[in-house]
Design a protein around this nucleic acid. Structure first.
Lengths: 201, 201
DNA sequence: ACCTGAACACCGTTCAAGT
DNA sequence: ACCTGAACACCGTTCAAGT
């Protein structure tokens, strides 16, 4: 975890881990069959640290609960930006990943969805969170923690306003909104539209 | 591109590229400042090959057009699975990425959305596609093309049925649906729910 | 079970030097 | 502008050997 935070996804090397432990690189292979297994364990460990804050007035309000879970997962992944790149390389079937999926199915069942609809909705929600953090992290690569939201928005705005309006007029016209893609507000907006569609159907 | 297809994201090395070109590794640095720039160019190149099939009866039907664009982008990324891991490491601001965003804003504007709503909807759609392919690719890592959908579903079902029903009863009860997460059908289902919510609001 | 040491086949990137 | 060659500081993984 220290290597992941300090040096990013690529910094998590077998040799680096061994070095921190004061051990020879090959000693790591007593505990993991290969580097991919180490990365998989790391991903599930981060997922195990997702904590949904118990907000008031959320009892019985399944929609608020789903939103809180999605935001908590997003927050945790943005807090450990290195894992996001790792998630495209390992199947998400660790115990903590499964526990999060189960918790989501629980809340969706409370919302009155049958088992199939709940599972499909759970899929869409996971996809949405993962995609959102992937886009966020892609904008601010490199090791170290993600910079504050405001900085990332400002950097995006600067990069996008450099665009000539000619080839991409609609993009140029909506620069302010597009710069805010990395924002929790836009994350919630898309989530709300999906939940609207879920309850309307 | 050949290296990406044959050996996956990690296989795209400066030395590997130089080798294919019959040139010394450092010669690559005449054209790209570093490996990250090579990867960024590769990502945008793949995005440039997205082709939305012109289906009948889609003229004036913006919802069908949005769906076709999302499916075309998904299909292209699944056809080059190596790029997906790359997308978490480079900002998506290449010319082809911008052109895709502009095309999406066009269709959404046709749907009657104002500039802000169109941009927000475009964000949610990009996030959804990227998240879906990331989940798909994570299930079938390693180099080479993605195996057929049916095989990936079967493998997921096998991995999930190994679960004891005790710790995760809802997951166990919905195994068939969850095994189908990597399916175009489920991709379309979530997309439809979002579009429902978009038009309802 | 857990660790070492040597070895193999790799990396990205720099720098100075050539044409 | 484009390429070379040498060098530096790294990788993952194997194997045989120890305790």
């Amino acid at each position: 975890m220290a290597l992941l935070r300090e040096r990013g996804a690529e910094g998590v090397s077998v040799r680096g881990i061994a070095g921190r432990l004061g051990v020879v690189p090959t000693a790591v292979y007593t505990y993991f069959p290969n580097r991919a297994a180490v990365l998989g364990a790391l991903v599930d460990r981060v997922l195990g640290q997702v904590r949904v804050p118990p907000e008031n007035g959320m009892v019985g309000n399944w929609r608020a609960q789903v939103t809180a879970m999605a935001c908590a997962l997003r927050a945790q992944l943005l807090a450990e930006p290195g894992v996001v790149a790792l998630m495209a390389g390992v199947p998400l079937r660790g115990p903590h990943a499964l526990a999060l999926g189960e918790a989501l199915l629980d809340v969706l069942a409370d919302g009155g969805l049958d088992a199939t609809a709940a599972a499909r909705a759970s899929y869409a929600l996971q996809v949405y969170v993962l995609g959102a953090v992937a886009l966020d992290v892609a904008e601010d690569p490199g090791p170290g923690p993600l910079r504050p939201e405001a900085e990332r928005v400002a950097e995006r705005r600067a990069a996008l306003t450099g665009l000539a309006a000619d080839p991409f007029p609609r993009t140029a016209a909506a620069v302010d909104t597009i710069a805010g893609y990395v924002t929790e507000e836009q994350f919630r907006w898309g989530l709300d539209r999906f939940l609207d569609g879920l309850t309307a159907g």
